[in-house]
Amino acid sequence: MKIRKNTLLIMMILLTVTFMFANTKNVSAKVTFNKTSKSITKGKNYTIKISGVKSKNIKKVKLKYNKKIIKVKKLRKNKYRITGKKKGKTTLKATVKYLLFDYTPAVKTIKCKINVKNKAAKKKKTNNKKNNDSEENIKPEIDWGENNIDKLIAQIEQSKTYKGTLYKLNDYTVFNKGEDGGEDQYGLITSPFYSTIDWYSKKDYDKIMNEVKRIVKESKITDDMIDEEKAYRIGRYMVKHIDYDYSVYGQRIYETLFDKKTVCAGYSVTYALICRYIGIDCDFVHTSGFYIDGQNMNHAWNYIKLGDYYYVVDLTDAYCGQKYDITGPFFRESGYVDSKQMSYIDEKYKTSDYTKDHKVDNISHYMRCKKNGDMSQTLTDSELYNLPE
């Protein structure tokens, strides 16, 4: 009887060890880069992730690669940005020390083959359209610069949107050619159906757009980032560099950018412009006729599109409530806006044409991604707050 009990005990121990080893092997085998090989262009960026293990369970990552061919920058414990430096091939090796599901330490070396190519030769543009010298068909030529975002915007087809000489240049600008020797005007789009357009001369327009480009660069935005991170970085930059000052008169984009102080409307129109510039649909939203005891209670904020829904971004609240730094939720649900304010929202945001295409989510963006089981398009509040500047 005693022998049988000892035999059973030994078998149970062996099964337990075997089970633990099997699980260790299985979990370890899942740890890998999200790509095992990748071709990138010299000077371009690519983000690579370590999958198969939670970021919080990663204790240390040691990288090995040819530094002459690529540059690697750590974004988070499980996320790295690769930049092509020189034409050639290298293998990015990562020795990952992490914890298994039972907190047992584990180590695995993972690899991704990187092939850096030179920039593709630029193709010469050809114009097969018939020449038409009529003034109403002339579309302005604009120097869009050299960065990737500029080139993407430049590809947007210039299409006439109104009668006469008013043209849509891109998703944030319309152009009005001056008549009878008058000055050309550039209008910045910040709200739906072009209902609010901020008009500027060519000189001021160029100055504004150069500042927008500088802000995007200062915010360290790259094409490979998810929209949520891009939009957060812009918002963070604005609340840290533009003061909320109720005494200011200027609430336009120009004054906001160059006086470095504004109120809710200035925050919202400027944020809408910069988001539209980097390719994210964003609207300036405001109330109208909202007074309590003769005091103006009107407010402005943004609706920004992330995925299939729009979300509330309120830079005034981010600034005033957090003293120059964002530490609260940023991409909020529809209920975040006070019901009293919503009753005074401008009529254009209540039309069926607007609401059918601008569905504001009833939960935050993070919760929507979590509900849909797709966390690749969102970051936790903590990850957003700790993004490198």
Rank of each mutant, 00 (worst) to 15 (best):
T262L: 01
Y244G: 01
T270I: 00
V239G: 06
L257R: 01
Q251L: 06
L273K: 11
V239F: 14
I242W: 00
M238E: 05
E255N: 11
Y254W: 06
T262P: 15
K260C: 13
V263G: 08
Y271M: 04
G266A: 05
K240F: 09
K260N: 11
Y254S: 03
V269T: 14
T256R: 01
K261P: 13
Y271Q: 00
Y244E: 01
A265G: 09
A265D: 13
G266V: 13
R252E: 12
R252F: 09
E255C: 03
T256E: 01
I274V: 13
F258K: 04
R252I: 13
C264G: 02
D243K: 14
V248M: 04
Q251C: 06
D245P: 03
D243S: 12
Q251I: 07
A265E: 12
A272K: 04
K240E: 15
T256Q: 02
K261A: 05
E255S: 12
Y277T: 14
S268E: 06
R236E: 14
Y267H: 06
Y244L: 00
R236M: 07
K260A: 10
V269G: 01
I242C: 07
A272H: 06
T262R: 12
C264L: 07
A272W: 01
L273F: 02
Y277P: 10
Y237N: 06
V248S: 03
L273A: 09
I274F: 11
R236Q: 14
K260G: 07
V269A: 04
L257T: 03
F258Q: 02
Y271C: 01
D259K: 14
V263N: 08
I274E: 04
Q251N: 07
L273Y: 03
I242Y: 03
G266K: 11
V239N: 05
T256N: 03
A272L: 08
Y237K: 07
Y249A: 13
S247R: 13
R236G: 05
T256K: 03
R236P: 02
M238H: 05
I253T: 10
A265W: 05
K260L: 14
Y244Q: 04
Q251V: 06
I274T: 08
Y246G: 07
R236L: 08
Y246I: 13
Q251H: 03
F258V: 12
Y249K: 08
V269E: 03
Y271V: 04
G266H: 04
R236D: 14
Y277G: 08
R252D: 15
T270R: 02
Y277C: 10
M238C: 10
V269I: 14
Y267M: 13
F258L: 03
L257C: 09
A272R: 02
R236K: 15
D259W: 05
C275T: 11
Y254L: 04
I274N: 08
